[in-house]
């Protein structure tokens, strides 16, 4: 598996993401790819890390989605490649139209930075196959705008298609249906506000994020490595 970690001006979780992929999957290649790159076609999995791309000016993710690299990300997403957006990465994927909904300010208007309970709603995905349905993970969140919003029709669709992958155990930010992470209809693009890449070592508080990365790798291996 070849993995890319996209770096925008203002990304700040890129190094954590890089190490999560490198240390916990058997990816042969993990590389940082700058926002100016024209193509990510060489990669099997593309990770969009958190941060404050372009200073969150205008709206979170609104400027980043027009960075040159995003054209190629959209193209690869349409081909079925694995795309994972975390936090600001999720917001960018929404702005790019690769995932539904949008983020509002947290309901209490505070930036929330703490570890929260995260429930696996759907384990039949390429991102969560190594978890079990109903598993509750401890994963940090760090965002001011994670209040998931969409209209009723879009919300119904998310429920009907099992696109809701993660929910918060408690209502932390006002998100509709306590949504913390969703995938697209095709199941190859994931966006989540919590930071699995910050939950990789017990001595850092939690290692519950590991299986997200091993799930992604497992999917790639099952699709690409022929075993007898």
């Amino acid at each position: 598996m070849k993995a890319a970690v996209i770096v925008f001006p203002g990304s700040n979780c890129d190094t954590d993401m890089f190490h999560a992929v490198k240390d916990f999957t058997a990816a042969e290649v993990v590389e940082f790819v700058p926002h100016t790159a024209n193509s990510v076609a060489d990669y099997d999995a593309i990770f969009i890390p958190g941060g404050f791309s372009y200073g969150d000016y205008l709206r979170t993710g609104a400027i980043a989605r027009f960075a040159p690299v995003m054209k190629s990300v959209s193209k690869e997403a349409a081909k079925g490649k694995t795309i994972v957006g975390v936090c600001n990465g999720f917001q960018i994927l929404q702005e790019a139209g690769l995932l539904p909904g949008a983020m509002k300010r947290n309901k209490d208007l505070k930036f929330i930075c703490r570890t929260v309970g995260l429930k696996i709603e759907n384990h039949n995905t390429r991102f969560t196959s190594e978890y079990a349905k109903g598993d509750v993970l401890q994963v940090p969140i760090a965002h001011g705008e994670g209040n998931f919003e969409c209209d009723d029709e879009a919300l119904q669709k998310l429920h009907d298609n099992n696109q809701i992958v993660f929910t918060y155990v408690n209502d932390v930010n006002g998100s509709k249906s306590q949504i913390a992470g969703i995938q697209n209809e095709e199941g190859n693009v994931l966006g989540m506000m919590p930071h699995p890449e910050r939950a990789m070592e017990a001595w850092l508080g939690s290692e519950d994020g590991r299986q997200l990365f091993t799930s992604v790798y497992r999917h790639w291996r099952e699709m690409n490595v022929v075993t007898n």
């Binding site: 205008l58 027009f66 539904p100 909904g101 509002k104």
Partner: peptide, 8 residues
């Protein structure tokens, strides 16, 4: 395209 997010 840019200034507003028509979703919300």
């Amino acid at each position: 395209q840019l200034l507003a997010n028509p979703v919300i």
